[in-house]
Computed example of a mutant assay.
Amino acid sequence: MRRTIVLILTMMLSIIVSQPVAAQSDMVAAGLKWILGQQQADGSFAGFGPGDTADAIVALVAGGEQPPASALNYLAGQAASYGTSSAGATAKVILAVVAAGRDPLNFGGVNLARQLGTTYDPATGQYGADVYGHALALLAIKAMGVQPPAPAIERLIGLQLRDGGWSFDGAAATGSDTNTTSLAVMALSGYARAGDALTAARNYLRGQQNPDGGFPYSQTSAFGNASDANSTAAVIQAILALGEDPNANPWRQGEATPLKALIAFQNQSGAFRYQNAMPDDNALATYQAIPAVAGRTLPVRTVTIPAAQTLIASAINLPTTGGETVPILALVALTGMALLVVGLWLRREPVRQG
């Protein structure tokens, strides 16, 4: 009798749990269908440029859909222009290329890993000109399954502001925002030395949550603090990267949760609106929302490309097997000392007559 009761309770729990999961799957499917309908004649996806096509490809893969070959062909045609325009652009293309199962070392005739390496400044440890691009670069490196230069991780940690967040450009005057902070959290997750920074970032994000469960760009934004789909999706991905459940405490606000708030932005068409005050279908909001609803953080796919390790920065700054950096000058000095010792030993060794 007891076994029967346990079995019934287990079945009931299974049904309760499976219902929201099934609902999320339906919402992802509807979103993917809408995204596919946004593809243009040249293979690109609706938006403001090639970066949006990269985002759409990532969203499709996150939702379980193979991107159209024409979309990848379009992006390959942009690799030598958009793909080399900034660290963030290069990183976006890498994330899309790896997600789609293509080779980032030869995409559209461009070695994207080498290109990313050209944006690295060993003097600062930063990729590109801003925090957002730097965090994207670290995510692209994760996608390729190699280790970033140790100073690059320390740089991102060092750019964290006192409130626990990050600003787009790294300046305190700009102020922290949820989007840059979420990207930084995804970039730093998995690195033990980033533990304190991630804890502070988590506290910052919790302080940005609205009563409806969603998130704004920033509570202090000049454009208001209403929740929006893009920011809510970004924070959900950060929560997932922290190993937490966006439907559970401490992210639950009564019955409201970040995931419920995001799902509420989906229109009948399958697309997501940016905010309730802007009810039209929004391509960028949809590209960002789908991975979050699907429970995927960045990068959505990771492969191991050993050859990328020496390309993402100069050999001087890359970690050794032990995780520390060995300056090339130190290696030269050690080699010179060894040769000197050998020379002295040979001078002292008696000459043998044949």
Rank of each mutant, 00 (worst) to 15 (best):
M1S: 14
R2Q: 14
R3D: 15
L9I: 13
M12W: 01
I15W: 07
V21K: 06
L32Y: 00
W34R: 04
G51P: 04
V61M: 02
P67Y: 07
S70N: 10
A76L: 10
A79V: 01
A79R: 03
T90Q: 06
V93M: 15
L95M: 12
V97W: 07
A100Q: 05
G101V: 08
P104F: 10
G108Y: 06
R114D: 15
G128L: 08
G128C: 05
A129I: 11
H134A: 13
L139E: 07
P148Y: 04
A150C: 02
A152T: 04
L156E: 11
Q160L: 05
D163E: 10
D163W: 01
W166T: 03
T174E: 15
T178K: 01
T181W: 01
V185D: 11
T199Q: 14
A201F: 06
A201H: 05
N203I: 04
Y204G: 06
L205Q: 05
R206S: 10
G207D: 02
Q208R: 03
D212E: 03
Q219K: 13
A222L: 13
F223L: 14
A226T: 14
S227C: 10
D228L: 08
D228R: 05
Q253W: 07
E255L: 12
A256C: 02
N282S: 12
L284G: 13
A294E: 07
R296F: 09
T297F: 02
T297A: 15
T297R: 12
P299L: 09
V300S: 07
R301Y: 08
V303C: 01
T304L: 05
I305F: 09
I305H: 01
P306F: 07
A308P: 10
L311G: 00
I312T: 03
I328H: 01
L329A: 13
L331I: 08
L334D: 06
G336E: 06
M337R: 00
G343Q: 10
Q353F: 12
